[in-house]
Design a protein around this nucleic acid. Structure first.
Lengths: 339, 339
DNA sequence: CTGAAAGCGCTTACAG
DNA sequence: CTGAAAGCGCTTACAG
């Protein structure tokens, strides 16, 4: 008991005499004592570890994940928590594995961009959860999101301010909340500018670079000789990069011939040529906040200053103006023939 | 005892009658029993978790980490292990934290690109380790590396085959093994081609995109009007991207005016314009192998088919030829003035 | 085939 | 101020 009290610092109120304290410290040092975390966890019911569940397919660099994950790791380290990663293949199919993770090895779990399709998914009880970018509300789980509609609307407004009228939108997969919110923002900005919505200028992709490449490349092939859009708003930075690739393949210059914008402001947005104008989501801060909310949920007593919010947390977004957007060319361009 | 035997499958040899087996199974189901991992770990001395220690500064996207980490996660999942990430700031300063991690929460630890500078660093005993891309030998720790010197040599040979003679090398930080091995390969290929080594064509950078950008940008500014190199071999893909940025800033085209190659073949190498010619290290496979070696070290009995090797594991590298290398221009170029 | 018992290494009332 | 004791939820000889 005395050893436990001394070695754990002032966590307990019992008073230990200086003499025995020294005796214990010396013994611990000479034995190079290290507490066993499993035993401590068993007694405490606290692992000081949080889990992060995420779908990683490994096909393409997931910059989104890396940014959020960095934030999670930072916040976890700051609060002396470990972070353990659970990779899933599919949110619905792997729901059983999710239950398996909640066997005491973690104190709480961050669901990173969960897309449960089945209604009434039963999450493990007794394990606190928090979600980031959840695709649909999850009962009793706070979701951390950003004001994507406003971001999309702001970017399209920026296009309009630059003089663009024929504005294309490369969307994400159908049925995704992020996809829908961007479309709403896109349409709202068009309506404000009294630009009629043209369904032919909205083409679906995935969230991947390859998807953006295919979507844009295909459209260019099908529309050779037709008027080129003035500007393209892409559902995220990866898709924007794929779009840049497809445009480069037919010899179009960005932003001289056509403007392109992304969404997210992952670190790649700065390493494209030209650097990408995009909508910044504070992904790292969102990851940090997720950890803080989760810890408050795990131990409300220790986090009275920052209690668990009773509704979703919406982070603001901001436009990041770089080099991939410029006023449209004076002479309207046509789609060049495939090379 | 019976419950444990039944619920753990055939792990033990004791025979349980079908009747009690059913009774146990039914009870477990009706209670929706989940074993507590901490208690199991305490009894077993096995957490079924491996740790990954890595320095992440968070300033720049670490594609290298993401690739290796993906391999680690895949292999860990395949062997039913969790992977928990420990982020360090500095290998030497955080050695105490490293000891702290070895408190039973993990069964073994992967050191990802450790750079211990102090000699005789004392790693925790009783915890199995494996290293990837260690900067120096660590006693009793298998290191997983690749044949970087051969890769560097091969890439510079490729330059020579294309007709390049003035070949620049943007190196990594001094004192790093990876830096030195690439320099050795670079110099060997030059010697083979009887191209005299020119110290003015070897400029140091970091491992980061910003480092490549600065190094190349600075050199171009200092050498305006001088002959331009034919080709540039960069210490890794990130640096190559920074180099591409700096070249674009002064209006140089790759590969028409100058050729550029990277090293690693991280996924970004395919998303630059032009796509990057580079040396492929099988980073994902190296991550996977690290897990396998570690598991064999943790439990040699269960891995008799793949015992722990008694020396370092060296993966082969290969040249990946994309679009950033071409024969040099017919008319020699000069370094353009800064814009 | 079955189950009582000890032990894994901690923490925490609780009684001196 | 101090320390014996029970308990966290498992596993594993061991004795019936």
């Amino acid at each position: 008991m005395a050893a436990s009290a001394v070695l754990n610092g002032a966590r307990t109120s019992s008073r230990i005499s200086a003499a025995t304290r020294q005796r214990i410290l010396k013994a611990a040092a000479s034995l190079s004592y290290r507490p066993n975390i499993a035993a401590r966890a068993l007694a405490n019911r606290r692992m000081h570890a949080i889990g992060v569940a995420v779908v990683i397919d490994g096909v393409e660099l997931n910059h989104y994940f890396l940014e959020v994950f960095n934030g999670l790791l930072e916040a976890a380290a700051r609060h002396e928590q470990n972070a353990t990663v659970f990779t899933l293949h599919d949110w619905d199919r792997d729901i059983a594995r999710l239950h398996g993770f909640c066997d005491g090895r973690i104190d709480g779990l961050v669901l990173l961009a969960p897309t449960f399709q089945r209604d009434g998914t039963v999450l493990p009880t007794h394990t606190p959860f928090v979600a980031i970018h959840a695709n649909a509300p999850i009962p009793k789980v706070v979701n951390i999101e950003s004001d994507e509609e406003r971001g999309a609307c702001g970017m399209v407004r920026h296009f309009v301010d630059q003089g663009h009228r024929r504005i294309m939108h490369i969307t994400g997969p159908a049925g995704m909340l992020g996809t829908e919110r961007r479309i709403r923002g896109y349409q709202r900005a068009l309506a404000e500018a009294q630009i009629p919505f043209d369904a032919g200028l909205m083409i679906p992709a995935s969230f991947l670079t390859a998807g953006g490449h295919e979507a844009m490349g295909g459209w260019l092939r099908r529309n050779a000789g037709q008027p080129l859009p003035h500007a393209i708003f892409c559902v995220n930075d990866n898709v924007a990069i794929g779009c840049l690739e497809a445009l480069a393949e037919v010899g179009l210059r960005v932003p001289e011939d056509i403007s392109v914008a992304g969404f997210d402001d992952t670190l790649v947005a700065r390493s494209t040529v030209p650097q990408l104008t995009t909508v910044r989501q504070p992904l790292r801060a969102m990851g940090q906040r997720a950890v803080e909310v989760l810890l408050a949920k795990i131990d409300p007593g220790a986090h009275k200053d920052a209690p668990v919010p009773d509704q979703n947390i919406v982070f603001p977004v901001e436009l990041v103006l770089r080099d991939s957007v410029a006023p449209p060319p004076v002479v309207a361009r046509l789609v060049p023939p495939p090379r």
